[in-house]
Every structure is written in C-alpha cells, then in structure tokens.
Amino acid sequence: MPFTVAEIVKPMMAAAQESLAKDWGQAKDYARPELKRLATSLADIAKLIAADKVNRRQAKALLRIHRNTTLTVLLTVEGLGVVAVEDAINAALGAVRDVVNTAVGFRLV
C-alpha cells in the first residue's frame, strides 16, 4: 500500500524533534559546568602567574594544558551533538519504519 510524503513527514519530524530536544539538552547540561570549570582554572592560572608561583616555562605549560583540556571538552560536546543527530535520524526512520516497509513489501528501513 503506497503512502504520501505528508503521511511520513509529520511523524518523522515529530520523532526527530523529540529526540534532538532530549539529547541536545544532555549535551548542554554537560557543557555548562565544564566550561565554568575551565574558566575557574584559567583564573587560577592567572593568579599563579601574577603571584610568581610558577616560572615562565611552567606558566606556558599550564596555559597549553588548559588549551588542550578545553579542546578535549569541546570535542566531547561536538561528539554528543553527533550522537544527538544520529539518534534523531534513527528516531525519524523508526517512526515511519512500518509504513515504509509495508509499502515496499520488504524490510527496507
């Protein structure tokens, strides 16, 4: 039995939106405190440098490690976004699986 575009777009959009809202919320929940933590450690590094508690080489190392940690956190946020998109695509496909498979007569989706 054939189906119309309108029939499958609505459940697909609804499933994708619901999935994205849930997963993206989780990515945001992760990112917020981590970025705050990075801001705090950057302030700590500035205090150590201002108080001459570290030499020039050690200050450079601290800043470089801070940069690396920031990039590591951002890669995780990006990865969580990819997982969210993947989940949304699969949720969208899942929402129309039965309709599409019934229409084509075999397990396409």
Binding site: E34, V54, L62
Partner: peptide, 24 residues
C-alpha cells in the same frame, strides 16, 4: 620540581580532560 601551588590546577585539568574522554 612541580610548583606546589600549581599541582592542584594541573590535576584538575588532567582530570577534566579524562572525564571528557570517558564521557564521550
């Protein structure tokens, strides 16, 4: 030697990076 006052900052940064890796 590692400067004593800086060790907690080094540790926090490494812990945060590992936590991010494990989280992903």
């Amino acid at each position: 030697t590692l400067p004593l006052e800086a060790i907690p900052v080094f540790r926090d940064l490494f812990n945060q990076a590992w936590a991010a890796i494990i989280h992903l």
